[in-house]
């Protein structure tokens, strides 16, 4: 009376269009309505159970949509290295669902085997860069594929940091060959929280390595009279972030853009409307360069 995995998937490239993060409250909508979005992204860690309805639902939805697997628990920035059991579980997930893209974060969440369930900040030092690159290479080897790494939102900066974040990102890509997932909301949030300008950030990113862009909403928290932006993915995308997306796409040409919403999740239609906005900006930008699915550039004549 169970439904064992039956479908053999092949990789569907992620199209250079707007996608949305598949979240639990929308799963039944996706199965019954098949909403018109170009692709979906899931958090890999939510699908590492052995079986049951969650995997069965993804199995069904995957038949209709290209899938991107976005990890939140690998802890690429951990001094202690990666958890090989976790790498193996992720590899099995990718082998089963054949995602078009696999991504993770420039952050850490595991120390001494304890998982802290947050994307914690790295000091931007040569030591941290070396450790991060070692871990990225291990992950790419374990998965048998290239991954994208995402720039984080951050709330602290470290006195010992010597490398600007954008250079840290670019250098990670240069050293390991990994692609970049450019989260323009995170750039906006970090730029505000650390009082830097986002323009030079975009200037420093090697455009050819960007395989995906994220947008999301954030939350403004006042500490006394100082505003700090919190990356809560719980609101519509802010105007300033749409503007930054437009600027990023002007440089990138067309590229897959994901709308994320994780907190106070609204009805699916609200999310679809946000995806339409993103699509409109992609359409404007796509008169420029045409790009492939994994970030490898294909230059239009």
């Amino acid at each position: 009376m169970t439904t064992p995995p039956s479908t053999e998937f092949v990789v569907d490239p992620i199209p250079a269009s707007a996608g949305i993060g598949l979240r639990h409250p929308h799963v039944t909508d996706f199965v019954t309505r098949r909403p018109p979005v170009g692709w979906i992204e899931v958090h890999s860690e939510n699908y590492l159970g052995a079986g049951g309805p969650r995997l069965a639902a993804l199995e069904q939805i995957r038949r209709d949509y290209p899938l991107s697997c976005h990890g939140v628990g690998l802890s690429l920035g951990s001094w202690e290295g990666l958890n090989v059991d976790h790498l193996a579980r992720l590899r099995a997930l990718f082998d089963r669902f054949q995602p078009g893209l696999v991504s993770e974060h420039v952050a850490w969440s595991v120390q001494d085997g304890t998982y802290l369930n947050d994307l914690l900040p790295l000091p931007y030092t040569e030591e941290a860069l070396t450790i991060l690159c070692r871990n990225v290479e291990q992950a790419q080897e374990a998965f048998g594929r290239r991954i994208l790494v995402e720039n984080p939102s951050s709330y602290v900066s470290f006195a010992e940091s010597t490398i600007p974040e954008w250079e840290f990102m670019a250098e990670t890509s240069r050293r390991t060959g990994c692609g970049l997932l450019l989260d323009v909301n995170n750039i906006h949030v970090s730029a505000h929280n650390h009082r830097f300008e986002p323009g030079p950030y975009l200037d420093a990113i090697p455009l050819d390595m960007v395989g995906e862009v994220h947008v999301a909403g954030h939350f403004v928290h006042e500490f006394d009279d100082q505003a700090i932006l919190i990356d809560d993915h719980g609101a519509p995308v802010a105007d300033a972030v749409w503007a930054l997306l437009r600027e990023a796409l002007r440089r990138l040409g067309s590229v897959p853009v994901l709308v994320e919403w994780d907190t106070r999740i609204p009805p699916l239609d609200v999310l679809l409307a946000e995806a339409e906005k993103a699509q409109a900006l992609i359409d404007i930008a796509s008169t420029g360069r045409v790009r492939g699915d994994t970030g490898a550039p294909v230059h239009a004549s």
Binding site: E45, N46, L48, G49, R54, V72, G73, L74, S75, N83, D85, H86, S109, V110, G113, T114, Y115, L116, N117
Partner: peptide, 10 residues
């Protein structure tokens, strides 16, 4: 007793 595996479902 913080988590020791990065899956909240566990």
């Amino acid at each position: 007793s913080p988590p020791t595996v990065p899956q909240l479902l566990a």
